[in-house]
Amino acid sequence: MVADGLGISAEFQATLSSVVFADIRVALHTGSFADARALTGRAFGDMQPDGLMLPFGRIAGAELAVAASLPDASDLLADAASTVEENDWAEACLLRATGRLHDDPDALAAAVERWERIGARFERACTLLLLPDRLDAGGRGRLRRVLLRHGPGE
């Protein structure tokens, strides 16, 4: 888990929405789907909302379910959609996950616009990678520059 070494029990870590979110994002962006079922279970289980992180954990879990082709991905995405209200990042992530699920380039393009609007360059670049006809709009090059300059936390 991302928070290993902080002196927090593994059982409690597994329920903290910020830790769940971080673990899911690492799995999603590295393509490590072996634990996708367990991670989405954490996101939609007894997750403890620490601060305002609950919507982030849920929508990230739903996107991981979609990317990993889990059989209940559509249901998880519908469930997560109810938590993204008034959260620009979560709304953009919902659009991207919806675009992935339905192979919908319009939803993916809308996600790119949302990421641009909130200045989420890493997420924008990752979304452009899902739009083969827009790779020349900066997906690979932008992602490389963002990672070299700022790291994946942006």
Rank of each mutant, 00 (worst) to 15 (best):
C93K: 11
A43I: 01
N87Q: 10
L95C: 13
G45S: 04
A107H: 14
A137K: 14
L128M: 01
D72V: 03
D79W: 06
A125T: 11
A43F: 05
L95P: 12
L77S: 05
G57D: 07
L76K: 12
A110Q: 01
L135R: 10
F56S: 10
C126W: 02
V84G: 13
H150D: 07
D79E: 11
P132M: 03
I59Y: 05
C126K: 08
D133W: 14
R142M: 14
H102P: 05
D50A: 05
S74Y: 03
A90G: 13
A110W: 00
L64N: 03
A107I: 12
L54C: 10
E91K: 06
G139Y: 05
D79K: 11
R37A: 10
A90T: 06
L129N: 13
F56G: 13
H102Q: 01
A92F: 10
V84C: 09
D133F: 09
T30L: 03
G139Q: 13
A110T: 04
E85F: 02
E116H: 13
G57P: 04
L130T: 13
P132L: 01
R145Y: 12
V84N: 04
H102L: 00
R142T: 15
G139I: 10
W89E: 13
P55R: 05
D50M: 05
G119W: 01
L94M: 03
L95D: 14
L129T: 12
L135E: 14
R134S: 07
A68Y: 06
